[in-house]
């Protein structure tokens, strides 16, 4: 039959491919919309009906990086000549720049907290994963279950006592507090995912090395670790993205100085009128690393989202 209907089949297949393209297009429209809004002028961003084609400008991007106030009188030509390019852009929007906004420091906070917590989670996770993979442990499945169950806790449920604990220890709004909580959030994941990767490394390699006189630790350090570099890279990117995207814990535990980007971006509603160009610019800048990482990770996504249970 296959031979007879092959022409029909081909047409059908093409139709399906076309449908896939349409679906992909629809799924991507929201992302395009937010990215394009960051380059719209204020008036284009709130026009009815919405503007699809427009002259791109940097106003929104400059706005998210600056604190501004309303321009009460137009700047003198001399002053205008002295102004930087971004100040001119803001003058054109009827405002003037006062100083830089908190956005760069919020991004920096996000980077510091996510990188450090990822590194710690990865380190502890790899060690634990190795032990769980290679050694006999009493009640191993129960321990693994316990570790994974920590990942299932709803943030809103644990946050009340954590808030109180942090308050007592003076960890609210501190880098160490945020790093600790993000490490705890990612550790179960790191253990499970790394265990999957370590399981795949043939145990014979270490055995051979140990026969050659390596200690157990040397075997782990010199044989197993280099073998699991891919796994560690994938795990750390996953941990990083999870921490990067986290919102609820940061909302409560990092209210100000070490606030990360996710709670900051919605707070850029503008002073008198919601300015979607600035919010969109902030969101877009924030999403760029995630998009890059998604492409880097594409081979490991399935494994990641199932805690290493399904490998492909």
């Amino acid at each position: 039959m296959a031979a007879v209907v092959s022409k029909n089949n081909k047409l059908y297949n093409q139709l399906m491919v076309a449908t896939v393209l349409v679906v992909t297009f629809i799924m991507l429209v929201p992302i395009y919309w937010i990215a394009s809004t960051s380059f719209k002028s204020y008036n284009d961003s709130v026009s009815i009906p919405p503007t699809v084609f427009f002259e791109p400008e940097m106003t929104g991007v400059v706005k998210v990086f600056t604190k501004r106030t309303i321009l009460r009188k137009d700047p003198s030509p001399a002053k205008l000549a002295k102004s930087a390019w971004y100040e001119k852009i803001i003058f054109k929007a009827g405002e003037k720049v006062l100083r830089a906004s908190a956005f760069p420091s919020r991004l920096w906070n996000s980077i510091v907290i996510c990188v450090v917590s990822t590194a710690i989670a990865l380190m502890m996770g790899t060690f634990a994963a190795y032990a769980f993979s290679r050694f006999k442990i009493f009640g191993k499945d129960d321990w693994l279950f316990f570790i994974l169950s920590q990942k299932m806790l709803p943030p809103m449920v644990v946050i009340i006592p954590i808030f109180l604990m942090y308050r007592t220890l003076g960890l609210i709004d501190s880098y160490s507090g945020m790093i600790l909580i993000y490490t705890a959030m990612n550790l179960p994941f790191a253990v499970w995912l790394m265990k999957g990767f370590v399981d795949e490394i043939p145990i014979e390699y270490e055995e051979a090395a140990m026969i050659d006189g390596y200690t157990r630790f040397q075997a782990f350090w010199k044989i197993v670790l280099p073998q699991s570099v891919t796994g560690m890279a994938a795990t750390s990117v996953f941990c990083f993205i999870t921490a990067w995207n986290e919102f609820a814990l940061a909302l409560i535990l990092a209210p100000r100085n070490v606030q990360t980007a996710p709670p900051f971006i919605p707070s850029q509603v503008g002073s008198g009128i919601p300015d979607w160009t600035a919010i969109a610019a902030g969101a877009t800048i924030f999403l760029i690393p995630v998009m890059i990482f998604t492409f880097l990770l594409r081979k490991h996504l399935l494994r990641g989202v199932t805690f290493g249970a399904i490998r492909k």
């Binding site: 808030f163 308050r167 609210i172 709004d173 209210p255 100000r256 100085n257 707070s267």
Partner: peptide, 23 residues
């Protein structure tokens, strides 16, 4: 330093409840 009106109160009192000195 600013935060949107709808959560200004929550933010401030969370900070106070934590005896924070960030502002």
């Amino acid at each position: 330093e600013t935060t949107p009106w709808p959560d200004f109160q929550t933010k401030t009192f969370t900070e106070f409840a934590a005896k924070g000195s960030s502002f």
